[in-house]
């Protein structure tokens, strides 16, 4: 679709399983639409030029920078943000629980981006070498932790998931 400056277009997108119809201007960033229009402020913006990774969300299952994506580009897409990670309001996803257990966060600002980046890979993480895992998250900056807790957390999440499933059966 072609849009002039100031003109809006209606897009349909699904965020954490909920369908939204939103009028967006061509220049509106997905990060701004998620945060300000839809009100999902768990997605953070750290640099606005795609380097820090704080704003990472899943677009159709793939991690992507919501600060480098125009909302209008996501017409028809399914987006997952950090708010969509835990099954219930008071529970934590195994990955979230692992971040808590391994002190994988301090100020929490970069954390949603790390969680969304780790989501597609954490099940394979126990088999990854240290170097592989570091490379896998090398698009994300953290200024607080020095990464040690984050690496342990991603590596340990699958185990938490297994033990939860074990407890259920």
């Amino acid at each position: 679709m072609a849009l002039n400056p100031g003109e809006s277009a209606r897009i349909e997108l699904t965020v954490n399983g909920i369908a939204h119809q939103i009028d967006v201007e061509a220049r509106w960033l997905l990060s701004d639409v998620l945060r300000h229009t839809i009100g999902l402020t768990g997605t953070h913006v750290g640099c606005e030029h795609g380097v820090c990774g704080c704003c990472t969300v899943l677009i159709d299952g793939e991690p992507a920078r919501s600060c480098l994506t125009f909302a209008v580009q996501t017409d028809g897409a399914a987006i997952t943000t950090v708010e969509g990670l835990a099954a219930s309001d008071d529970g934590l996803h195994p990955l979230q629980e692992s971040f808590r257990m391994h002190h994988g966060l301090q100020c929490g600002y970069c954390t949603p981006g790390f969680l969304m980046t780790a989501l597609p890979i954490y099940e394979r993480a126990p088999e990854m070498s240290d170097e592989e895992l570091r490379k896998a998250i090398s698009g994300q900056l953290c200024r607080c932790t020095g990464y040690a807790g984050i690496l342990s957390a991603i590596r340990g999440a699958a185990e938490i998931e297994r033990s939860r499933k074990g407890a259920e059966s």
Binding site: T41, V82, R100, G108
Partner: peptide, 10 residues
């Protein structure tokens, strides 16, 4: 503080 920060409720 972690449950809040981890679930996007910070």
């Amino acid at each position: 503080e972690d449950p809040r920060l981890l679930t996007g409720k910070g």
